[in-house]
Design a protein around this nucleic acid. Sequence first.
DNA 1: TAAACATTGTTATTTTATTAACAATAAAAA
DNA 2: TTTTTATTGTTAATAAAATAACAATGTTTA
Lengths: 208, 208
Amino acid sequence: MNTLPAKTVERLSEYRRTLMGCLNAKRNYIYSHQLASLLHITAVQVRRDLMLIGYSSVLRKGYDVRELIDTIGRIIDSEETMNVAIIGIGNLGRAVAGYFKGKRSKLNLVASFDNDPQKVNKVISGVRCYPYQEMEKLMGELNIRIAILTVPADYARETAENTIRFGIKGILNFTTVPLNVPSGIFLEEYDMITSMEKVAYFVKENRF
Amino acid sequence: MNTLPAKTVERLSEYRRTLMGCLNAKRNYIYSHQLASLLHITAVQVRRDLMLIGYSSVLRKGYDVRELIDTIGRIIDSEETMNVAIIGIGNLGRAVAGYFKGKRSKLNLVASFDNDPQKVNKVISGVRCYPYQEMEKLMGELNIRIAILTVPADYARETAENTIRFGIKGILNFTTVPLNVPSGIFLEEYDMITSMEKVAYFVKENRF
DNA sequence: TAAACATTGTTATTTTATTAACAATAAAAA
DNA sequence: TTTTTATTGTTAATAAAATAACAATGTTTA
Ligand SMILES: NC(=O)c1ccc[n+]([C@@H]2O[C@H](COP(=O)([O-])OP(=O)(O)OC[C@H]3O[C@@H](n4cnc5c(N)ncnc54)[C@H](O)[C@@H]3O)[C@@H](O)[C@H]2O)c1
Ligand SMILES: NC(=O)c1ccc[n+]([C@@H]2O[C@H](COP(=O)([O-])OP(=O)(O)OC[C@H]3O[C@@H](n4cnc5c(N)ncnc54)[C@H](O)[C@@H]3O)[C@@H](O)[C@H]2O)c1
């Protein structure tokens, strides 16, 4: 299949998250407009996204929740589990680790790396923290493909470059520093302040 | 002026962040292509955004960094400071507070609210934590307009509804739960897992 | 059974966002 | 001084995303 639009991928992730909630609540079928309204989007959007991944409902009964979860998984998850590491297990790193650990079967948070002697070789937020110096060795051994970057801003560039040198293929960058990555490496950046300023702007304008 | 496109607002925030970095590095002028390359976007994008806010450069010398920072501020910041509170000062709340506190002059983190007796009436990550029960009173007294929601998922709906009842106009929701807000309230949601799954998908596809 | 209905998958249309094109302009070079 | 050059602001073109429209199809109900 062709690569899906980034927005569709994001929504598929959200659909799955929501659908898992439905399963928990013992709901086994769901109509497009119901799923849509849980996520505050339109039913057309849902149907169009599902069309793109070729999923068909049981007519007039809605989508089979469990089946749809599986289908989305087959599309957006990798075949074998993809291993993830957190670089810099400080305040944000710990929050992220705690939230993330064990949430997805195909996305496995296997390590954190830090240079604080107080932290290394301890289990923090459910994840073993390794010395930063061992990153090269362990990235290979543990087959880590994705890095979550939560080091202080001053070290962002340097640590990112290292993760790439050691074989990482994707980076989720939470530091303030915009990174430069070579082609072939997928980079996603998120800065909370941008979100806050966006909220503040639209609150001020009160027109949206 | 007309409301700016959301994407432009996001980029203006990023421009400003980057420009402040330039100022720190004693750089006083910057060309559109230089700013663009710091953020990995195109120069046209930069120029178009600045056109929308009506900012003009000193020709052939580039944009005056300080002046541009001020102009962006006049557009995206509110006149008087806008007060912000964090609801639920746990792992994520603390990380956010520490990062955010004092970063923007017009966006002021003035309180956190929590129902853990161990936390209330202490200063945590630079912010005073108040008992959740006093939210109603204090939201008015402190004139809080924006809430950052970092409570456990199970309490997301309830606490969000309360903040709205008590006068909040914008919510930045970090919980897994998609919220339903009445019109007139601006809602921004962010879930790390969606970002992670997006990274994983494009790493898997290796085509982007 | 036949008519009305609810829901879907998909194509067509509209809207939004990005990129390209280019004339205008002043600085630098000839 | 004149020409070349670099850079801008803006309009025009393209691309991406969202929405609308609608035929198809079984379900319900009259
Ligand atoms: N994007 C966001 O929304 C957001 C929110 C909060 C914080 N942040 C950013 O995330 C980063 C981390 O914030 P924090 O509050 O967790 O900071 P922190 O100081 O609590 O944590 C940083 C961690 O990195 C470790 N570290 C320092 N240098 C290192 C190195 N060279 N190699 C490996 N580990 C190293 C430290 O020992 C510490 O454990 C900062 O850049 C901050 O600006 C971003
Ligand atoms: N969006 C993301 O990227 C992301 C990342 C990590 C965590 N999270 C989410 O953020 C939330 C907080 O995560 P965390 O790791 O900080 O959890 P946490 O348990 O460390 O913190 C939650 C805090 O909320 C307080 N609280 C509980 N009930 C409350 C109530 N009714 N009113 C006020 N305060 C209350 C608790 O006392 C605690 O201090 C969770 O919903 C988690 O899923 C989101």
